[in-house]
Amino acid sequence: MNSYEKHVYKYWMVMPGLLIYLIIFGLPTFLSFYFSLTRWNLISTTFIGLENFKTFFSQTNLRTALGNTFIYAFSTSLSKVIFGLFIAAGLCGKLKTSGYLKSIIYFPTLLGFVVVGIAFSSLMHPSGIINQGLAFFGISKVRWLINPDIALFSVILVDFWKGIGVTTVIYIAGLRAISPDYYEAAKIDGASRVQTFRFITLPMIISSINTVLTLSLIGGLKSYELILTMTEGGPGFSTEVLGLVVYRLFGQGMYGLATAGSVILFISISFIIFPLNHFVAKREVEL
Rank of each mutant, 00 (worst) to 15 (best):
M1F: 09
M1Y: 09
Y9N: 06
Y9I: 11
W12N: 14
M13W: 15
V14W: 09
L27W: 15
F33A: 13
T38M: 01
T38H: 08
T46A: 11
G49H: 06
K54I: 11
N61R: 00
N61P: 00
G67R: 08
F70Q: 09
F70G: 05
Y72G: 01
Y72I: 04
L78P: 01
G84D: 09
F86H: 10
A88I: 01
G90T: 05
L91I: 11
G93V: 06
K94M: 12
L101Y: 01
K102C: 08
I105V: 14
I105M: 00
Y106N: 03
P108V: 06
T109N: 13
V115H: 07
I118H: 08
A119Q: 14
F120V: 05
I129G: 10
I130C: 03
A135F: 13
G138D: 14
G138I: 12
K141Y: 13
V142R: 10
R143H: 15
W144R: 07
P148H: 04
A151Y: 07
F153H: 08
F153N: 12
V155Y: 00
L157I: 13
L157G: 15
W161S: 12
G163T: 05
V166H: 01
V166G: 04
T167I: 04
T167M: 03
V169I: 09
V169L: 04
G174R: 04
A177Y: 09
I178R: 00
K187A: 15
G190M: 08
A191S: 13
S192K: 05
R193G: 15
R198S: 10
R198P: 10
T201L: 06
N210C: 11
S216P: 04
L217S: 09
I218A: 14
L221D: 01
K222C: 05
K222D: 00
T231V: 02
V241Q: 04
L242C: 00
G243A: 08
V245I: 12
Y247W: 10
Y247P: 08
R248Y: 08
G251M: 12
Q252E: 14
L257V: 04
T259P: 06
G261E: 02
V263P: 05
I264C: 03
I272E: 01
I272K: 00
P275H: 01
P275W: 10
L276W: 04
H278P: 02
R283K: 15
L287K: 15
